[in-house]
Design a protein around this nucleic acid. Structure first.
Lengths: 225, 225
DNA sequence: TCGCCGGTGCGTATCTTGCTGGTGGAGGAC
DNA sequence: GTCCTCCACCAGCAAGATACGCACCGGCGA
């Protein structure tokens, strides 16, 4: 986990950096707004701890610049100013949290854990295959950021194939997982869905291959988690 | 956007709920830990505001129970206790933020915005889609600098679609996040809002697409998050 | 009172679903 | 290599499901 610490008070910066390193984070320190801007633009950090009172460039301006550059790192603001309007402004500018000096080190560490935990949690719900990604939470497919418009039945089949990610799924297994107790589907119906899916997916670099007499599987470069 | 407020002090609960509703959130209120547990288990909320001092069941236990059930809703803890160890404990149990009473309403609202924004994967307070931008801070839409005048219900729906950033949102999810306990909405009503929104948004280059049998999503070039 | 907002009911247009049947190709038997 | 069988594929179709938008009504605030 990589943290950028922006703090002009040398003693405080050193102390914080030492403690955070002791907790296992990789910490880079800069002492003014302009360097913060430059470093944040050049490298990727998971988290930025940002003092508001900075020489060269105000902390809020650093934040604004980062966000306008689509930098998605989490940001914790540190400041001596306690005015509520200040805090609200910082938060609305895109900060994720706010601590007023003097603060408790263990509380800072707890808040860091919260933010890193959230970031980790956000990532894990997508599966990519070929040019297409599947979002587990919304159960929807998208290609290049655009949602794919797929009817329910075909979507169910595609989801199944995605979950088995490139392995062959037998026709019986497909029928089994797409029907309830009292319903049934002809094997031909499955072939029908496959045919329709193929046509729909062709522009997106994803193909459904058939294993003759056995079943179907996805072909395309696996990508993502 | 749906919020669960857990607070045993009746006056405070009423006051907060009124203010939040005034800001356009759907707010449900419960007064003790056991009910909080039950309600959170049964329904989906975008955010839970949780007092720690509760009858029946401690706030931290409610939080623990939620997280162990994989409930991923954002949680803000409210408490009179100011001890740093208390805060650290709350945050490490899975809370996303912590406010000590007495707190500033505008700060609470700012922190709510931060959490909702983060859930949507956004880093700044402005979201652009097609020719329309949404400002999280003022919860208002504008096109080419001019504010758009949209009735409350339609605004809620459009906000939801914006927050999901072009992903498909199921009709059930829409109904869920637009209604509280005792209310309900017909599926037809949603279709109605969509229809009205479409007419309203057409001049501004923004279209609501329907994924038949699944839900709705926004179409238009996404810009800024 | 008027006008706007929120919500329901219903007829119509559109899309999906599952089947049938015909065609073509794969692969085994000889 | 040739033939033959079986399987996969797809066009087309009818029935059913779903979304759409209009008409309309009640409520509330100006």
């Amino acid at each position: 986990m990589r943290i950028l610490l922006v703090e002009d008070n040398g003693a405080l910066a050193d102390g914080l950096a030492t403690i955070l390193r002791g907790s296992g984070y990789v910490v880079d320190v800069v002492h003014d707004g302009a360097s913060a801007e430059a470093v944040a633009a050049a490298q990727n950090f998971d988290l930025v701890i940002l003092d508001l009172n900075l020489p060269e460039m105000d902390g809020l301006d650093v934040l604004r610049a980062m966000r306008s550059r689509q930098n998605r790192a989490a940001v914790i603001i540190l400041t001596a100013r306690g005015a509520p309007e200040e805090r609200v402004k910082g938060l609305d500018l895109g900060a994720d949290d706010y601590l007023t000096k003097p603060f408790d080190i263990s509380e800072l560490e707890a808040r860091i854990r919260v933010l890193l935990r959230r970031q980790a949690g956000m990532r894990s719900s997508q599966i990519g295959y070929g040019g297409v990604t599947f979002d587990l939470t919304s159960r929807s497919f998208s290609s290049e950021g655009r949602p794919l418009d797929i009817p329910a039945r075909e979507l169910g089949l595609l989801e199944l194939l995605f979950m088995r990610a490139g392995k062959v799924v037998s026709k019986e297994a497909i029928i089994g997982s797409m029907t309830g107790f009292d319903e049934d589907l002809s094997a031909n119906a499955i072939e029908q869905y496959v045919s329709r899916l193929r046509r729909r997916l062709q522009p997106h670099g994803l193909t459904v291959k058939s294993a003759r007499g056995i079943g179907y599987y996805l072909e395309g470069a696996a990508a993502g988690r």
